[in-house]
């Protein structure tokens, strides 16, 4: 048996089916949302948060490093893009978007280089500290950032001068396309030799060092990639809201993305997406009749940590058998035992 080839063939049919159903779902989703009294806006937001959660989860679920300050990168990229559009290229969306991503990834790389030496809970503390630092710079630098009021006047200009993304549905499709690209890219990354090493580091860091890996440079690269994907979500959020808010980089936002990842399940790519869908939707739903939606979110978080520590996808995995998500889960081939 050749590894790899036999496994891919087995799932090929399923994959094609999943892709077709997926495309239908993406197009139908906003219509479905409207029929239950929700909005296109929310549907777009869900996919933005799915990108955010996927990026965050590369670090948490696949490398085993927890950051409590990822919202800083989410918010910073939106501010970078907003400022760029206001001051440099008022006629473009694409250039500010790319600038926001590039700028944030660069700052993220510098910060990552500084903090990657710390481990575990200390790393978590340092990430909180840095996210607060970024937040307070944004709030206090009122001349540039307009402080707590945020930056308005952002416009969706046509992409490549002819693709109009002003209508909500067009922007939704644009976000979905970016989401699919991010998903595919991450799928390639986690299956590459590099991705396998990240998972080995997650499983046993010491051992990874002792078989000849420069673990710290892998961790740093994972951190930078994670910041990159987070900033992609950040700039998309800016052009959805057409406004940059300091709240987008607050600690609660960092908490939300952790909850999304944990609820969905962090050991595969489907988990964070599922988590983003559920939490974004619940947040919208609960906040429509109470301001105290954080209480409910906290309750859900505690429930999952205690009862389903592996999240929804992990739960399905445990009850394996004939569940439809099985081929999306990590494979456990029992045939060759015995």
């Amino acid at each position: 048996m050749n590894l790899g080839t036999s496994i891919t063939k087995k799932n090929a049919a399923f994959r094609v089916g999943a892709v077709i159903i997926g495309i239908f779902a993406f197009i139908m989703l906003p219509t479905l949302f409207k029929s239950i009294g929700s909005t296109m806006f929310l549907a777009t937001e869900i996919f933005i948060f799915a990108i955010f959660a996927l990026g965050f989860n590369l670090l948490l679920g696949f490398t085993g490093i927890i950051s409590f300050g990822h919202a800083a990168w989410f918010g910073l990229s939106s501010y970078a893009a907003a400022l760029f559009q206001r001051h440099v290229t008022p006629d473009s969306t694409l250039i500010p978007l790319l600038f926001g991503i590039l700028f944030t990834t660069l700052i993220g790389a510098l910060v990552g280089k500084l903090i990657i030496k710390t481990r575990g809970i200390y790393f978590a503390y340092v990430t909180i500290a840095f996210s607060q630092l970024v937040l307070f710079i944004i709030i206090r630098w009122t001349k540039l950032t307009n402080g707590e009021n945020g930056l308005g006047g952002i416009e969706r200009k046509p992409l490549f001068k002819f693709i109009d993304i002003v209508p909500e549905f067009n922007y939704y499709i644009f976000v979905v396309i970016v989401f699919i690209l991010v998903f595919i890219l991450l799928n390639i990354i986690i299956k590459s030799p590099f991705g396998r090493v990240l998972q080995a580091i997650r499983e046993n860091r010491t051992r990874a060092i002792f078989i000849g890996y420069n673990v710290r440079s892998y961790e740093l690269t994972s951190y930078i990639l994670s910041v990159f994907f987070t900033s992609v979500a950040g700039v998309l959020d800016l052009f959805l809201l057409k406004y940059a808010f300091p709240e987008s980089m607050a600690t609660t936002m960092s908490g939300e993305v952790i909850i999304m990842t944990l609820v969905g399940g962090m050991h595969n790519l489907t988990g964070p997406v599922l988590g983003a869908i559920i939490i974004t939707f619940l947040k919208d739903f609960i906040s429509s009749f109470t301001d105290r939606w954080m209480i409910f979110l906290g309750g859900i978080f505690v429930l999952f940590v205690m009862v389903f520590p592996e999240g929804i996808m992990g739960f399905f995995g445990k009850w394996g058998g004939n569940n439809p998500f099985k081929s999306l889960l990590p494979k456990r081939d029992k045939e060759s035992e015995s």
Binding site: G4, I188, I189, K191, S192, P193, F194, G195, R196, V197, A200, A208, I211, G212, Y213, S217, Y218, T221, L225
Partner: peptide, 17 residues
Amino acid sequence: IAIQARHPQRFNPFTKI
């Protein structure tokens, strides 16, 4: 994973094993 540590492709996130 241990074998791969010797290979030059180890750091490449865009290839297959």
